[in-house]
C-alpha cells in the first residue's frame, strides 16, 4: 500500500507523467461488461440518443407554440433553419433546395454531437472515423450517383477542364479525378481529426495539471482550449455542411 501511494506520488511529481489522452474515445457497453457487438447498447448509443433528444427538444418542442413572434427557443430553431436554408440556397441554387432536409439532418447531427461532446466526461461520437466516414461516404455516394443520374455521361465534364489549354487537360483530368476521390477522405478526417485533436489536447493539458507548479497554467490552457473547441465544434459542422453543398452543386451543375 505504501509503495502504491509512493508510486502514485512519483507519477504526480512528473518523473513519469501518465497521459491517457485517447481513453476518452473508448467504446464500452453501457450495461454489463461483455464484448462490443454490433447491436450492443454502448456509450455510443447513449450519446447518439442524447443527440436525437437534443434535436427533438430544440426543433420540435421549441417550435410547438408556432408563434408568429418567436420566443427564445423557437428563434433558435428558426435561426438554425434559416442558416442552413440560406447556405443551401446560396451555394447550390434554387434547385438544391430539394435536398435541404438531408443537409439539415447532417448539420443538426454534427453540430449537436460536437456540442454534446464538449460536456465533460461525455463521449464524442463525431471524433470517431467510423462515424464521420459513414457521413462522408453517404455524401460522396449520393452526390456521385446524383451527378450521373441528373447529367448522364456529361457529369464526367467535371473532370475535363474546358478552360485549360488542350495539352494540359489530360493531366488536369487525372488531378481532378484524384482530388474527387480524396473528397470523402478529407471530408471525414477533417471533422473527426479536428474534434479528436481538440479533445486529446485538452486531456494532455489535464495530465500536466498533476504537476502542482504548472497546474494553474494548465487550467488556463484547458479553459482557452475549451473556448477554441466551442468555436471549432460549430465551424467544423458548418464546414462539413457547406462542403456538402459545394459537392452537391458540382453534381447538379458540373459545368461550373
Amino acid at each position: 500500500m505504501a509503495t502504491e501511494t509512493h508510486g502514485a506520488e512519483a507519477a504526480a511529481e512528473g518523473s513519469s507523467l501518465v497521459f491517457h489522452p485517447m481513453d476518452q474515445f473508448i467504446v464500452k457497453p453501457l450495461f454489463g461488461h461483455g464484448d462490443v457487438g454490433m447491436f450492443t447498447i454502448t456509450n455510443v448509443t447513449l450519446w447518439l440518443a442524447l443527440a436525437i433528444l437534443a434535436i427533438f427538444v430544440m426543433m420540435v418542442l421549441g417550435t410547438s407554440r408556432r408563434a408568429v413572434v418567436p420566443g427564445r427557443s423557437q428563434s433558435v430553431a428558426e435561426l438554425a433553419y434559416g442558416f442552413v436554408h440560406k447556405m443551401v440556397e446560396d451555394v447550390t441554387g434554387k434547385d438544391g433546395l430539394k435536398y435541404f432536409p438531408y443537409i439539415m439532418t447532417l448539420f443538426m447531427f454534427i453540430v449537436t454531437a460536437n456540442f454534446l461532446g464538449l460536456i465533460p466526461m461525455s463521449f464524442t461520437t463525431t471524433s470517431h472515423f467510423a462515424v464521420t466516414v459513414v457521413l462522408a461516404l453517404a455524401v460522396f455516394l449520393t452526390v456521385t450517383i446524383l451527378g450521373f443520374v441528373k447529367n448522364g455521361a456529361s457529369f464526367l465534364g467535371l473532370f475535363w477542364v474546358s478552360s485549360a489549354p488542350l495539352a494540359l487537360r489530360p493531366i488536369l483530368a487525372i488531378i481532378e479525378l484524384i482530388s474527387y476521390f480524396v473528397r470523402p477522405v478529407s471530408h471525414s478526417i477533417r471533422l473527426a481529426g479536428n474534434v479528436m485533436a481538440g479533445h486529446a489536447v485538452i486531456k494532455v493539458f489535464a495530465g500536466f495539471a498533476a504537476i502542482a507548479a504548472i497546474s494553474p497554467i494548465s487550467v488556463l490552457a484547458i479553459t482557452a482550449m475549451y473556448g477554441l473547441e466551442v468555436l471549432v465544434a460549430f465551424i467544423q459542422a458548418y464546414v462539413f455542411t457547406i462542403l456538402t453543398c459545394v459537392y452537391l452543386k458540382d453534381a447538379l451543375h458540373p459545368h461550373h
Partner: peptide
Amino acid sequence: ATLFIGIAFAEALGIFSFLVSLLLMF
C-alpha cells in the same frame, strides 16, 4: 463562405499530418 472553405481545405492538410503523428504514436 469562401473564406471558411479555404480555411477548411488548408486546415485539412494539417489535420492529416496530425493524424500521421497520432498513428505513429499509438
